[in-house]
Design a protein around this nucleic acid. Structure first.
Lengths: 217, 217
DNA sequence: CGGTTAATTGAACGCATTCAACACGAGTGG
DNA sequence: CCACTCGTGTTGAATGCGTTCAATTAACCG
């Protein structure tokens, strides 16, 4: 039962059809089941990837086992363009996923395809902006603010009342540079102040947008 | 008295002459004095930049005044390619600087210039890797480890015994997501363990490379 | 030298972590 | 339908790392 995560991400707000075409033309569709690896940390980077359905996360594990989640990718998002010769982060299917995969060489052969060039460049820039935001968050925000920011970004993606969290608390914690306990405490705190409401642990609703926005800073 | 920061950055280890040529051909050289602004936060991104001499830092200040340093750029480094329509970080001259500036449009007109394309792409990828490292550091490393990593990266740049810190403690702190006091404490701690030695506050020498490397993780 | 800024040190506090216990939900089998 | 289990999430109490605020020392520049 793969939950559908609709492609209403503001970050992906661009005419996706042309790009989809390019990917369809050059690449191939693959399926990944929950918690399976799409590519490994330190693996050679020979492909580009595009989420068709499901959610992907990138992670990096240090020698002594500490884990950092790079980002989460939703339908329409490009990923795997992060690095030079090899991937610094692994990519894993958070849910069951359909992924379009295309060889870098194939894309390079189509250099000059204005549409494709533009899409790749855009995606790279978006990726950098996300990373920059992430740096500011980890460097200068409190636990409370980090959790608030995170909920904001998820809530913005969903149009209607309720928003779903595709990831568990551990993934949130590893993305935010916190522990599961702290994440959990901040969530109950925000709920206690009626800023958000959790009918279940994976589903929530924003009650006070302005308050949340102020915290997300 | 502008201190010379030699161009021995391992991150910039590529045939710089050809790229220098391209920049010389298309751009113009500008001088910035210490602490002056090269471009502002949220300013339109119309240029690319290359450090000729001196050191540049990028910073972002949140609404309530918290500051995050993005990175430091040394001779040979390209910067200002961070984002889409506008810069998320400001760029400032840390020391007196000579900077090569080139309009993005000019570079775009030379698309197909394989040398230049490659250099721009490389720089973008390097930039992403730095950001990824930064995220891991801020998300998962202790104060001690952050400071050690930072000293490592500086020390690697200098070939001979002594290494110079072009930036003050506040800049280090804002880069590492710490306070000046914590940075200072960690430095004295590392010095107490004879891992590094500071003859003056802006100059140091690594005594135990393996120990420092182990900490930098 | 004095005057000024930058860096270090000290002591108390507080936020996030750690370690441990408990609650909840989904599946499974009696 | 309930009991049992396992994974996941929440809550509590104690600890500790980094911060905060304040005072001192060191470096820089006239």
């Amino acid at each position: 039962m793969t939950l559908a995560y609709p492609m209403s991400d503001p970050r992906t707000a661009r005419p996706a059809n042309a790009l989809t075409d390019a990917f369809d033309r050059l690449g191939m569709r693959m399926n990944f089941s929950r918690e399976s690896e799409i590519y490994a940390q330190d693996e050679d980077a020979e492909m580009f990837y595009r989420v068709v359905s499901g959610v992907v996360r990138t992670t990096r594990v240090t020698l002594d086992g500490r884990r950092q989640v790079g980002d989460f990718y939703y339908p329409g998002d490009l990923f795997g363009l992060e690095s030079g010769p090899e991937h610094r982060f692994a990519a894993e299917a958070l849910t069951d996923c359909e992924i379009m995969v295309v060889r870098r060489a194939a894309v390079r052969a189509f250099a000059g395809d204005a549409e494709l060039d533009r899409a790749m460049l855009d995606a790279t820039h978006q990726e950098m902006e996300r990373l920059q935001e992430h740096v500011v968050m980890l460097g200068r925000k409190s636990a409370r603010e980090r959790v608030a920011s995170f909920l904001m970004s998820i809530a913005q993606r969903q149009s209607d009342g309720h928003a779903d969290l595709p990831m568990g608390r551990q993934d949130m914690a590893d993305y935010l540079g916190l522990t599961i306990e702290t994440v959990s405490r901040m969530l109950t705190q925000l709920q206690g102040e009626s800023i958000v409401e959790f009918p279940s642990s994976r589903r929530f609703q924003v009650r006070k947008w302005t308050a949340l926005e102020a915290l997300a800073a």
